[in-house]
Amino acid sequence: MHNNKKILPFIYLLPTGILLTIFMVIPIIYTFYLSFFDWNLIAPTKDFVGMRNYIEVFTDPVNQKVLMNTFFYIILLLVLNFIVPYVISLIVKFFIKRMQGAYKIIFFIPSLFSLVVGAMIFSWLLNPVSGPVAFLFRESGFVLPNWTNSGGLAIVVICLITNWKVFGYNFILLLTGLGSIPKNIVDATTIDRIPKWRMIWNIVLPMNKSIAIYVLILTIVQGLQYVFTPINVITTGGPYYGSSNVLYHTYLNAFVLYKTGNASALAITTFLIFLVLLYLEIRFVEGRSRYE
């Protein structure tokens, strides 16, 4: 009986454990292994090249461009998918009294739709020649720049598409965090006639820190993966890698150019960046270990 009790939890963890071992742990190790070889995904032999693939990650001009783009993506995603929803959730929580529920329900609706749908709608809305936004620009005497010709502008459009999808989700997460701040603290500041912005800056933001960091990190980690879909659907990374990021470039190397080793080295590099973020998540969000 006692023995049984010791084995049982592991039996319950077994399905998840097996799946994670086969489809996550071993693949990570294998990708690490592949990153030291020159291979094309098909050939029976792989050539050992040592650190060459990693050196290329940082020296190859296309890779450098893609890394810079990734940095630009992160900044934009942080502003659009973290700061803006945070400000909006503060407004909904502290500055209005009615319709909070309605805003929650409406803002969330785009999260229900595939990013392929979002990419399609926005490539129509923002079509520089025949789209409605270009039409409105023309009517009022402006010209909508042809964003498909410029890597930087294409990145902005791609981030806007993912923002359309994840805005409501992040908004609700942040709003929930604000909801868990004790009401009497907020009330006390109103009685003392402390201005709202000071209450938010000095009390609300520090108290909401852990959930905010959780959303911030999620914004980077998931955001960089979300933008993959609009990149692939609208620009395929162009013009000339201008809108590609590390994840998309990994895919391109692996399944279009068949440079498996380069792709693996890029994937490992991405993973290392994400590990730093994971460390921050554990440090600030999971807090003290859960089961001690």
């Binding site: 994670l20 980690v221 993966q225 990994t250 991405t270 998540e281």
Partner: peptide, 26 residues
């Protein structure tokens, strides 16, 4: 227990690009 739980949570931070080649092969 704590370590196993953290490992599970950590899977959220694994980019799909790192598993896609081996998983495709499997």
């Amino acid at each position: 227990k704590n370590l196993i739980y953290l490992l599970f949570v950590a899977t959220i931070f694994v980019p799909f690009t790192i598993v896609m080649i081996p998983n495709y092969l499997v």
